[in-house]
Computed example of a mutant assay.
Amino acid sequence: MNKTARQALTLCKRIVIKVGTSTIMYPNGTVNLQRLEKLAFVLSDLRNQGKEVILVSSGAVGVGLHRLKLLEAPKTIPEQQAVASVGQSELMNLYSSFFFNYGQVIGQVLMTRDIVDFPESRLNAINTFEQLLMKKVIPIVNENDTVAVDELDHETKFGDNDQLSAIVAGITEADLLIMLSDIDGFYDRNPNEDKKAQLFHEVHHITPELFALAGGVGSKFGTGGMITKLNAAEHILERSGQMVLANGEDPTVIFNIIAGEDIGTLFTAKQAN
């Protein structure tokens, strides 16, 4: 008897989890400590179960804005990078504190686009991830906003952490990418504006029609939106991977997803028989 695509998620061993800025911060720009603590608990427990876990975390700029008491992101690249520098250290301090409570060691991995574009640096990145996972460390990944730029011929920026998480899932050959956002999944229209919006439970192909249904950017403190999530899903499907887009309001939902429950939208090339 063939397992359904959802049931097959129970077999996933290497899992990349991406959390958006809206998941770890309140709308007023302060850090959601309760969610960070729950996230540390869930990922540490997955590690205890024998899963290999990689966390791709947004939020450096948002945390930096809060720490510097700024109401909105600055316009210039140097100012943005300065804010990211402050926020990244603050964010890692918070993660270190929460994961320490569960006896889980973490490691920071800051990436720029050129790392995966050049074979030698790409191999070095892969080797780093493999060593961290072998030592039962949870890598926490973010784009290196302090040095990344995207202008003229010098493209070192991923553009958003949705795309980064899909690339990390690819180079580490992860079994599953779980993307936590502030929405329950991918809908045929905006569920915040239309109560008749229908959730896509499974998606097997990313089409122009799906992109037409997606629109807008994410929260005031983030850079993502539904289009960036479809781009990430497209990258995942191109390598026959799997991705679940779900609401990160309660990080323990990760347990339910891995248990094969029908939560969020599953992007998979593997159609159930």
Rank of each mutant, 00 (worst) to 15 (best):
E173T: 08
G216N: 12
K75R: 12
G216R: 04
G224S: 13
K270M: 03
E193S: 09
T268A: 04
A214H: 10
V168H: 08
V203I: 15
A259N: 15
E130H: 13
T252W: 01
E120L: 11
C12D: 04
H205W: 03
F255D: 09
R122I: 12
F99D: 08
R6S: 03
N192T: 07
Q34W: 02
V253K: 07
L245V: 15
S181P: 04
G62I: 09
I140Y: 00
G185W: 01
I17R: 04
F221K: 02
V63I: 15
L245A: 01
F255P: 09
I17L: 09
I77L: 15
A272H: 03
V31A: 02
D175A: 02
L70A: 04
I183P: 01
A82C: 08
K270T: 09
V147K: 11
T21Q: 03
D162W: 09
D153A: 09
S22Q: 04
Y102H: 15
K69R: 11
N127F: 03
I54W: 00
D262E: 14
V217N: 14
G241M: 08
L213S: 05
A148V: 09
Y102K: 11
N32E: 14
S44R: 03
I171E: 08
G87P: 09
T112M: 12
E155P: 00
V244L: 07
G215W: 02
A60Y: 13
N101T: 15
L199F: 04
L199G: 08
D194G: 02
A169H: 09
G62V: 08
G87W: 02
K195E: 15
G218A: 03
H235Q: 14
V149G: 01
F267P: 11
D188F: 02
Q88D: 13
D160M: 04
L91S: 10
A174N: 06
L65T: 06
